[in-house]
């Protein structure tokens, strides 16, 4: 179960998508999110969907990875669908007992589901094709104008790098601790909400303890290698925009424009 979480997991490859500058990919992802949210009707989502399917195909990331990124949010999808289905609109098309389903509700809930799926599936392509380090490098570079406003850009990106780096470690640790407690007869699968919440204590406490221990060790290791913040630090990998970055941004902009065209039809 835990190994299905894919945030921060990189799918190695050497496709054009992998080779793009991380800043380009972040900007494209932002444009892509705008694309999805600008859509006023189901038809307006079409460019976004075509865009992310094309990107997946070019990236060479297997399509089954899409489903993997969607698995953890299935409850959210169902919840959104149900909520919209029952509580929107008044053109009733189906009625049973206290349940009323409206045409508008149906249309709106399909719209929402498609949007959420496209959002998660599309944005996870960013983490599939960009290593966490590149991602934060890109983010730091994009946000660097904020340094003038005394915003701690470097510290923030260092924190993100570390957080991303430790997600897989924490997942592994969690499953180890879960196994160890199950071996002592911990019952994690049955009982009411309160009982289940209580059953998490034997897992969360060791997890926190080890997370703090790791943090301390990491801080020591960084300090003994003379880390002193971002001032004057040079980079191993310099970021450079290339022609392909400009072309991809232009293509994305075209897709975004087509959403507005579709909206105004």
């Amino acid at each position: 179960m835990l190994s299905n979480i894919t945030i921060g997991q990189y799918y190695p490859g050497s496709s054009p998508v992998h080779k793009l500058d991380p800043r380009t990919k972040i900007l494209i992802t932002v444009l892509y999110i705008v694309m999805l949210f600008a859509a006023a009707e189901v038809i307006g989502l079409l460019p976004g969907i075509i865009f992310f399917i094309l990107s997946y195909i070019i990236s060479g990331v297997p399509l089954k990875m899409i489903f993997r990124s969607l698995k953890p949010i299935i409850p959210l999808i169902v919840f959104t669908a149900v909520l919209n289905l029952f509580f929107v609109g008044n053109d009733v098309i189906f009625e049973f007992w206290i349940i009323k389903i409206t045409g508008e509700g149906l249309r709106f809930s399909i719209f929402m589901i498609v949007r959420i799926i496209a959002l998660i599936a599309g944005t996870s392509l960013l983490t599939y094709t960009t290593t966490p380090i590149m991602l934060t490098d890109g983010l730091e570079s994009l946000l660097s104008p904020l340094k003038k406003l005394k915003f701690p850009v470097h510290e923030l990106s260092m924190m993100m790098t570390i957080a991303l780096r430790f997600i897989p470690t924490l997942i592994e640790e969690t499953s180890k601790i879960m196994s160890a407690q199950k071996a002592r007869g911990a019952d994690l699968e049955s009982g009411g909400l309160l009982k289940r919440a209580k059953a998490l204590i034997p897992i969360l406490i060791p997890l926190f303890v080890s997370a703090f221990r790791r943090a301390e060790e990491l801080a020591l290791a960084m300090e003994s290698r003379c880390y002193h913040g971002g001032e004057g630090r040079t980079r191993l990998r310099e970021l450079h925009f290339k022609l392909r970055d400009i072309i991809s941004l232009l293509i994305t902009a075209l897709f975004l424009a087509s959403v507005f065209v579709l909206n105004s039809l």
Partner: peptide
């Protein structure tokens, strides 16, 4: 309960 298992480095399970 019948098959007790002590993990490799079991000290992380204390809570």
């Amino acid at each position: 309960f019948k098959v007790g298992l002590v993990f490799q480095y079991p000290e992380y399970q204390l809570f």
